[in-house]
Amino acid sequence: MEIDPFIFRFSIFILSIFIGYYVVWSVTPSLHTPLMSVTNAISSVIIVGAIIAALASSSDKIFEISNIFGFLAIILAAINIFGGFLVTQRMLQMYKKKKKK
Protein backbone atom coordinates (compact mmCIF):
# COMPACT_ATOMS: atom_id res chain seq x y z
CA MET A 1 0.00 0.00 0.00
CA GLU A 2 1.33 3.39 -0.93
CA ILE A 3 0.62 6.44 1.10
CA ASP A 4 -1.22 9.17 -0.76
CA PRO A 5 1.07 12.24 -1.15
CA PHE A 6 -1.80 14.27 0.28
CA ILE A 7 -1.12 12.65 3.65
CA PHE A 8 2.44 13.92 3.58
CA ARG A 9 1.30 17.44 2.80
CA PHE A 10 -1.34 17.15 5.48
CA SER A 11 1.35 16.09 7.97
CA ILE A 12 3.42 19.12 7.07
CA PHE A 13 0.33 21.26 7.56
CA ILE A 14 -0.47 19.89 11.00
CA LEU A 15 3.14 20.07 12.18
CA SER A 16 3.34 23.65 10.96
CA ILE A 17 0.28 24.53 12.99
CA PHE A 18 2.09 23.24 16.05
CA ILE A 19 5.22 25.18 15.17
CA GLY A 20 3.09 28.27 14.66
CA TYR A 21 1.43 27.72 18.00
CA TYR A 22 4.69 27.63 19.95
CA VAL A 23 6.44 30.31 17.97
CA VAL A 24 3.58 32.77 18.22
CA TRP A 25 3.18 32.30 21.97
CA SER A 26 6.80 33.30 22.33
CA VAL A 27 6.20 36.59 20.52
CA THR A 28 6.32 39.46 22.99
CA PRO A 29 2.92 41.23 23.26
CA SER A 30 4.45 44.59 22.46
CA LEU A 31 5.27 43.28 18.99
CA HIS A 32 1.81 41.98 18.18
CA THR A 33 1.16 44.66 15.59
CA PRO A 34 4.38 43.91 13.66
CA LEU A 35 3.45 40.23 13.99
CA MET A 36 0.21 40.90 12.15
CA SER A 37 1.85 42.90 9.41
CA VAL A 38 4.61 40.34 8.89
CA THR A 39 2.21 37.38 8.82
CA ASN A 40 0.32 39.38 6.28
CA ALA A 41 3.42 39.76 4.16
CA ILE A 42 4.41 36.11 4.33
CA SER A 43 0.93 34.80 3.60
CA SER A 44 1.28 36.64 0.32
CA VAL A 45 3.61 33.84 -0.73
CA ILE A 46 0.37 32.91 -2.47
CA ILE A 47 1.99 34.92 -5.26
CA VAL A 48 3.63 31.61 -6.18
CA GLY A 49 0.25 30.38 -7.39
CA ALA A 50 -0.40 33.66 -9.13
CA ILE A 51 2.88 33.42 -11.05
CA ILE A 52 2.14 29.85 -12.17
CA ALA A 53 -1.30 30.97 -13.33
CA ALA A 54 0.05 33.99 -15.16
CA LEU A 55 2.83 32.13 -16.93
CA ALA A 56 0.69 29.17 -17.96
CA SER A 57 0.24 30.24 -21.52
CA SER A 58 1.45 29.37 -24.91
CA SER A 59 3.53 32.29 -26.06
CA ASP A 60 0.94 33.80 -28.41
CA LYS A 61 -1.93 33.98 -25.94
CA ILE A 62 -0.65 35.83 -22.91
CA PHE A 63 -3.96 37.28 -21.81
CA GLU A 64 -6.31 34.32 -21.65
CA ILE A 65 -8.92 34.79 -18.94
CA SER A 66 -7.17 32.44 -16.49
CA ASN A 67 -3.88 34.28 -16.99
CA ILE A 68 -5.55 37.62 -16.36
CA PHE A 69 -6.66 36.42 -12.94
CA GLY A 70 -3.06 35.38 -12.35
CA PHE A 71 -1.77 38.83 -13.27
CA LEU A 72 -4.35 40.50 -11.04
CA ALA A 73 -3.37 38.23 -8.15
CA ILE A 74 0.28 39.13 -8.75
CA ILE A 75 -0.50 42.82 -8.33
CA LEU A 76 -2.49 42.23 -5.14
CA ALA A 77 0.10 39.92 -3.62
CA ALA A 78 2.97 42.24 -4.59
CA ILE A 79 1.26 45.17 -2.84
CA ASN A 80 1.06 42.99 0.24
CA ILE A 81 4.58 41.65 0.08
CA PHE A 82 6.28 45.02 -0.33
CA GLY A 83 3.79 46.88 1.82
CA GLY A 84 3.83 44.23 4.55
CA PHE A 85 7.57 43.79 4.88
CA LEU A 86 8.37 47.49 4.56
CA VAL A 87 5.78 48.65 7.06
CA THR A 88 6.99 45.94 9.47
CA GLN A 89 10.54 47.18 8.99
CA ARG A 90 9.40 50.73 9.61
CA MET A 91 7.68 49.74 12.83
CA LEU A 92 10.57 47.62 14.08
CA GLN A 93 12.98 50.50 13.51
CA MET A 94 11.05 52.42 16.13
CA TYR A 95 11.41 49.78 18.83
CA LYS A 96 14.67 50.91 20.27
CA LYS A 97 16.01 50.88 23.76
CA LYS A 98 17.08 54.25 25.06
CA LYS A 99 20.47 54.58 26.65
CA LYS A 100 20.10 55.02 30.36
CA LYS A 101 21.52 58.27 31.62
Binding site: P5, F6, R9, I12, F13, I14, S16, I17, I19, G20, Y21, V23, V24, W25, H32, L35, M36, T39, N40, I42, S43, V45, I46, V48, G49, I52
Partner: peptide
Protein backbone atom coordinates in the same frame (compact mmCIF):
# COMPACT_ATOMS: atom_id res chain seq x y z
CA UNK B 1 -6.22 29.20 6.17
CA UNK B 2 -7.09 30.51 2.71
CA UNK B 3 -3.41 30.47 1.77
CA UNK B 4 -3.08 26.94 3.15
CA UNK B 5 -6.09 25.79 1.11
CA UNK B 6 -4.49 27.12 -2.05
CA UNK B 7 -1.20 25.57 -0.93
CA UNK B 8 -2.82 22.13 -0.94
CA UNK B 9 -4.24 22.76 -4.40
CA UNK B 10 -0.84 23.79 -5.70
CA UNK B 11 0.93 21.07 -3.72
CA UNK B 12 3.28 23.77 -2.52
CA UNK B 13 5.10 23.30 0.79
CA UNK B 14 5.95 26.96 1.31
CA UNK B 15 2.30 27.92 1.05
CA UNK B 16 1.12 25.10 3.30
CA UNK B 17 3.67 25.95 6.00
CA UNK B 18 2.99 29.67 5.79
CA UNK B 19 -0.76 29.21 5.77
CA UNK B 20 -0.58 27.07 8.89
CA UNK B 21 1.72 29.56 10.64
CA UNK B 22 -0.44 32.56 9.83
CA UNK B 23 -3.62 30.66 10.61
CA UNK B 24 -2.47 29.66 14.06
CA UNK B 25 -0.92 33.06 14.71
CA UNK B 26 -4.22 34.81 14.06
CA UNK B 27 -6.09 32.26 16.15
CA UNK B 28 -3.78 32.80 19.11
CA UNK B 29 -4.09 36.57 18.85
Amino acid sequence: WAAAGIGFTLENTALIITGALVGSSGAIL
